[in-house]
């Protein structure tokens, strides 16, 4: 019975949504639609928001990756919130699973290939992850993918050492310091510039590593934070006490 009702509801939703989106007349080109209005001064612009980003991001932020410029600079506050969502989830997981951790887990020898392979691969994983988050303002990627790559290295460690966890305290300290760094970089914007998260460092030479002001700093903080957070989540989900 429940399955029939569920099927009817989801098919209805599918039909309505598909019909709506297929017949919608939204402009496919951002140059033809959406000339914005500044809500405070009520000034009309003859451009749309994405056009403005594409035109000005080089001048405003110095980052060649426009998506990064939006994520970290123009809409940087969202990203602080995003980091916080992950942090909240990691904290919640630790809160729920702390009691359930066990000291002695059934001990199976991992596969030989996994064991030897991990020693070979692990340094490369860490290097690639670090590269991705350091070059977030120049190439696709950034703090989140880079941190996730590093966390995959942690996952490999957890798979190889079947009866051990990760150094929880060290991860937690890294996470805290990285998070505080991000918030502090933002708060310093109130001191050295005018607004929270406003850039106050020199923009440097376009497309060079040392450019784009606070963006690389923030992405390095995010990289450390995401790596240690995801590592902590994996550690908690494995449910083994450290050492």
């Amino acid at each position: 019975m429940r399955k029939i009702v569920a099927a009817i509801i989801s098919i209805t939703v599918f039909v309505i949504l598909t019909y709506f989106f297929i017949t919608s007349s939204a402009p496919i080109n951002y140059t033809t639609g959406g000339q914005y209005i500044n809500p405070i001064t009520h000034e009309h612009s003859n451009q749309s928001v994405p056009q403005q980003y594409l035109k000005d991001s080089k001048k405003d932020t110095g980052a060649s990756n426009v998506v990064t410029a939006i994520v970290v600079e123009y809409r940087g506050f969202d990203t602080l919130g995003e980091v916080t969502v992950l942090f909240t989830a990691a904290t919640g997981i630790a809160l729920l699973l702390d009691e359930l951790k066990r000291r002695n887990v059934p001990h199976d020898e991992p596969n030989f290939i996994v064991k030897v392979g991990s020693i070979v691969v692990l340094p490369f994983i860490v290097v690639v992850g670090t590269y991705i988050f350091i070059h977030g303002h120049l190439t696709p990627g950034g703090g989140f993918p880079g941190g996730a790559v590093i966390a995959s290295g942690f996952l490999l460690l957890l798979l190889v050492h079947t009866n051990r966890g990760l150094p929880e305290r060290k991860l937690s300290v890294t996470e805290s310091i990285a998070g505080m760094t991000y918030a502090l970089i933002g708060l310093l914007g109130l001191v050295f510039a005018h607004e929270f998260l406003e850039n106050y460092l020199p923009l440097g030479t376009f497309t060079y590593l040392f450019s784009a002001g606070i963006i690389p700093l923030i992405y390095i903080a995010i990289g450390f934070k995401v790596g240690s957070e995801l590592g902590g989540i994996l550690h908690n989900l494995k449910g083994v006490h450290e050492e």
């Binding site: 429940r2 399955k3 569920a6 099927a7 509801i9 989801s10 098919i11 939703v13 599918f14 949504l17």
Partner: peptide, 13 residues
């Protein structure tokens, strides 16, 4: 939309 509908069905059933 198909993915959304499949997800909805799974959640409900």
């Amino acid at each position: 939309m198909a993915l959304i509908a499949i997800g909805l069905y799974g959640v409900m059933s």
